[in-house]
Write a protein that binds this DNA or RNA. Structure first.
Lengths: 133, 133
DNA sequence: TCATATTTAGGAATGATTCCTATTTTTATT
DNA sequence: AATAAAAATAGGAATCATTCCTAAATATGA
């Protein structure tokens, strides 16, 4: 058993995968594959973009990181705890919102009879600091 | 003034634009540009895909329809009233949820001091009818 | 009808992501 | 430590949704 406890297709350890995981976990900036690629390249200059994409996908599939789609681009998030996102249309920043939306989700489950596996609130607007300018 | 009351770049009437708007407004299936294209082509065989994309974008910018990003693909929604979306991972259907999430939004606004212009809840799970199989 | 502004058709270009394959690395076994 | 099988990688080609470009067509207002 490797030190990640991988399942499914992630059977072997690789330094690339470890670096990609650590890079996503080490930021709150909701990076794209391209950004992760540029970071990982600093310690592993020969890493390929395809490897970054493949591993980000695998890590998300295996519940190690989250994939969030923003305007047609995949962003990754190392925080697995359920939380929401606010996008500032002014400074183009994605801000984490750690406020639960549980009552809404259970209201929907109750009224619709669908099973909700996961949910995500995506908010757009003007952030606190842009507002005060 | 044309019969749509367009603003911004939508200055002139065109039969293509009208057909595209009516097509989106005439379904609850959250269509993609490609789907709208195939529908519009039935009455306007020479319509081009670029025209469909351009008009869907303009109509969304002008508040006539909504653009929703699902897994990196833009879907359009003719219902402008605020509502949420549930995606069934079994039958791959997008289902409208007409339950307001207002209290959550105002809680976030109050606690964070951001201005929330709009918000959207994206839920994934298994729908009622798939559940009962 | 005329002059101007707007829109279109058609196709090329873009950009994020996925796919392909020969080579390299990891792992399990001896 | 040597070896064979399995898994992962590098590098680049392919894909696919979307945007951009331009000459021709259409709509508008006078």
């Amino acid at each position: 058993m490797n030190n990640f406890g991988y399942v499914l297709d992630m059977k072997n350890y690789s330094i690339q995968r470890e670096s990609i995981l650590k890079t996503v976990q080490g930021t709150h900036s909701h990076p794209t594959a391209e950004w992760v690629f540029s970071k990982v390249k600093k310690t592993l200059p020969n890493v390929s973009l395809g490897t970054v994409y493949r591993n980000l996908g695998l890590l998300a599939d295996n519940g190690k990181i989250q994939a969030i789609h923003f305007d047609g681009v995949i962003h990754y998030d190392g925080t697995m705890e359920n939380h929401q996102h606010f996008y500032c249309i002014e400074c183009k920043t994605i801000i984490d919102i750690h406020i639960p939306n549980k009552s809404f989700v259970s209201e929907v489950e109750q009224k619709t009879n669908h099973i909700i596996a996961n949910s995500h609130v995506h908010m757009n607007g003007i952030c606190k600091s842009c507002k005060s300018k």
